[in-house]
Simulated assay, not measured.
Amino acid sequence: MITLPSPQQLRYLLALADHGHFGRAATACAVSQSTLSAGIIALERQLDAALLERGAAKRPVFTLLGLEVVERARQALGALEAVAETAAAARDPLSGPLRLGIIPTIGPFLLPRLMPALRAAFPRLRLWLREDQTERLVAQLEAGRLDLLLLALPCACGDAETLALATDPFLAALPAGHRLAARDRVPVGALSAERLLLLEGGHCLREHALDACGLPRGTLPGEEGFAATSLHTLVQMVASGLGVTLVPRLAVEGGVLAGTPVEVRPLEGEDGAEATSGRSLALAWRARSPRAAEFRDLAPAIAAAMNGA
């Protein structure tokens, strides 16, 4: 009969892989460094396999087998947690901790009205928030460090299940007095003749804006060294007359233009009607998550906050 590793041994191993340092891993597990080291050594003996290279390196170096065991351990602990989550969700839906990841082009503009609404509707729910770019949030979701994401589609969401909540149209943001500001709507094609300012690579909003303008992905001519790191910085660049940009309506309603002379106009499609270019705001969670029904129940409240209800 095979002797199975204990959940605690697997937690020690994952903490060491995630923190890359014995001391920090021990602190994360609330044990002494010697206890953590002894637990990992016991795991190696139990498996009769070397998971770490023993040498003079200051940081732990995993063997190839060790790296594979780390990923297997992550899956195994995720499955164990899912057992407990299933029981908890059945006992008391939408209560207890929920680790929510949110992208920075949504968070600052939605959270001020979303958080009070969720507290009122689900008083037993405790939200822990993590703001980061889409790619890193998806990686944390897959690793089991986050339960639910609030992001914009399309995105590279891996195997995550997604649920669209609302459409967030783009608006043209123009310096005060810009010639295009004299129009009620700005033709999408007219933006190709302007210096289009964008967020730096890694922000999904950059790709969505390029798609909305029908421009190829990549660095735009003259953009080197000038990409912004946040929507607020992008708006300040427009206010300084450096160019034009596209901003989501959600951010405008959330006050991103406050204190600036920047003017916004809806976009106009080729048929002369208001363009529908924008992004789709959505929830994402791990496929087969035992809390999927909870997340779907949460969706209407989040969508209402997005729509200003």
Rank of each mutant, 00 (worst) to 15 (best):
G243N: 00
P97F: 03
L146C: 06
E53F: 15
P300Y: 14
T86F: 01
V247D: 00
G177Q: 08
L267V: 01
G107H: 06
V247N: 00
A25F: 05
A273T: 13
L199Q: 02
P97H: 13
A273H: 10
G202Y: 02
I40N: 04
S240T: 02
D297F: 01
E85N: 13
A30S: 11
L36D: 04
D147Y: 11
L129C: 10
A143R: 13
R119P: 05
L150H: 13
A120C: 07
L197P: 01
C29I: 06
G55N: 15
E294I: 14
I302K: 06
G101F: 07
D132C: 01
A25W: 03
P300D: 14
L242Q: 02
A42R: 13
A303P: 05
E194K: 00
R288A: 13
L150C: 14
A30E: 12
L267I: 02
S280F: 01
P154L: 07
S240C: 03
I40R: 03
H203P: 12
A172R: 01
H21L: 05
L163K: 14
H208T: 00
P60I: 10
P216Q: 09
P290E: 15
M1W: 10
T63W: 11
G78H: 08
Q8M: 02
P5H: 07
M306K: 09
P104V: 05
A89E: 14
A28S: 12
I106W: 05
A143M: 03
P7H: 01
H19D: 14
V70G: 11
L52N: 15
P261Y: 11
A73E: 04
S37C: 06
G78W: 03
L64R: 15
L52E: 13
A82K: 09
E253K: 12
F170M: 07
L220F: 00
A84S: 14
G255N: 03
